[in-house]
């Protein structure tokens, strides 16, 4: 394996059981993501985009095949080890932002840092830096309900980058935003990719969003497809 490859997905399968029926979401899919790439995963609903993202982020396990990140096979990790690995290596950005409504922006961003050994002051510095990157220092004490969708998503991105993760995984990060706010988020992701060298895998079915990525792959019925599927 080349040293440039950060994510190496080999022949992964993912089956779900619904009643007596086996549903094949991913079938022998392989994918490599070089370090520093901004990859867009596109495909119609049910094509397996989010499932693939979950496997890469260690949020779920494949039924078959392997997932290697930085040369480490994460699919065999115990639950505890996988949780610790996620905390250290993965930043997650969700379509619905998924901020905790009872916490202020800074407390939300602080969440992943609670799992580190950093002191309170060090955590505060990291939080301030992350909020500054997304341009929301002035909103640190605001609760999610007091912010717009775009601002909430920027808080979500600050939470994702506050631990300086290896990999940034974004699931439809602009899916719930208007075009202007969506563009701001995509600008931010591009800056993180280009200026900070973050490797980003973004699920989207918006061609406008995928155009910002350095590469786009298409999924159809659980397999990679060379052609875009309508």
């Amino acid at each position: 394996m080349s040293n440039d490859v950060l994510v190496h997905v080999r022949n992964v399968e993912k089956r779900f059981r619904r009643g007596s029926e086996d549903i094949h979401v991913l079938s022998g899919l392989s994918l490599e993501v070089p370090r520093g790439e901004f990859l867009a995963l596109m495909g119609p609903s049910g094509s397996g985009k989010t499932t693939l993202l979950n496997l890469i982020g260690g949020l779920d396990r494949p039924t078959g095949g392997s997932v290697e990140i930085e040369g480490e096979r994460i699919d065999g990790f115990s639950d505890r080890k996988l949780a610790a690995w996620r905390a250290r290596h993965v930043g997650l950005v969700f379509q619905m932002y998924n901020l905790l409504p009872v916490l202020t922006a800074e407390r939300n961003v602080d969440l992943p840092l609670l799992l580190t050994h950093l002191s309170r002051q060090e955590r505060r510095r990291h939080v301030e830096a992350a909020l500054a990157v997304v341009g929301l220092s002035h909103r640190a004490r605001h609760f999610p309900r007091q912010m717009s969708g775009g601002e909430q998503q920027r808080v979500g991105i600050a939470r994702a980058i506050v631990t300086d993760p290896t990999l940034l995984l974004c699931d439809e990060p602009t899916g719930d935003l208007d075009r202007k706010a969506g563009d701001e988020i995509l600008d931010l992701l591009q800056v993180l990719n280009r200026e900070q060298g973050k490797t980003i895998v973004m699920v989207t079915h918006d061609p406008h969003a995928s155009a910002r990525a350095s590469r786009t792959v298409h999924l159809n019925k659980g397999q990679l497809s060379t052609e875009a599927v309508p």
Partner: peptide, 14 residues
């Protein structure tokens, strides 16, 4: 449930 899922996604253990 979603929030608890998010916490686990962020790396909090079960």
């Amino acid at each position: 449930t979603e929030e608890l899922g998010v916490l686990k996604a962020l790396g909090f253990t079960s």
